[in-house]
Design a protein around this nucleic acid. Structure first.
Lengths: 87, 87
DNA sequence: TAATATTGTTTATTATAATACACAAATATA
DNA sequence: TATATTTGTGTATTATAATAAACAATATTA
């Protein structure tokens, strides 16, 4: 039996994804911080699963072209809710 | 030509989704705030597209059983990155 | 329409995310 | 191995998200 996903799990996975994306672009934490105009410490903490603000997360997502994906996913959830309400 | 999705768009959509989910459970902002042990003002601001913390967003997502979906979506993005690196 | 419930807004305070800086630890490169 | 680069940590400060409480503005219901 696999345990349910926790908030901590999601934060850690978000951090891992940032780390992976950043490295695939061959950017250091310093580089990414600079282009996004945020501090390296903020990136550092986010990549290691600490709490962050939505703005920080979305700035990073945007830089790695994940904003449209995210938006569409949210729209899909909203739509699936609409459909369920028909039954 | 449709404009690209902005960070503001995503925050507004997150807020709308919270509002919709909350209403589908017939909860007031007050109700939701109480069960999540956060203030109604935090919900209020989030639902209207203001900035928030990841913890706030994930507490809400968790309450509406969206955490597994989110986690899996993040894993999928990570995996698709791995695959691309093979070519 | 009157009463009730919900949502929006304001102000003040507290908690904490973000910043800046320095330095140590760990990795990568010459 | 020595040098350089990157990452992790610590401390202090600043900016702002979160809280609490009250009240006005909107919906909802009787």
């Amino acid at each position: 039996m696999i345990d349910a996903i926790t908030i901590k799990d999601v934060k850690l996975q978000l951090g891992e994804l940032c780390k992976q994306k950043r490295r695939s672009y061959e950017l250091s934490q310093e580089d990414l911080a600079e282009v996004l105009d945020i501090s390296r410490y903020t990136i550092q903490k986010f990549e290691n699963g600490k709490n962050a603000t939505l703005d920080t997360v979305l700035k990073i997502a945007n830089h790695f072209d994940l904003l449209n994906n995210l938006y569409q996913a949210l729209k899909d959830i909203e739509k699936s809710n609409d459909i369920n309400s028909l039954y």
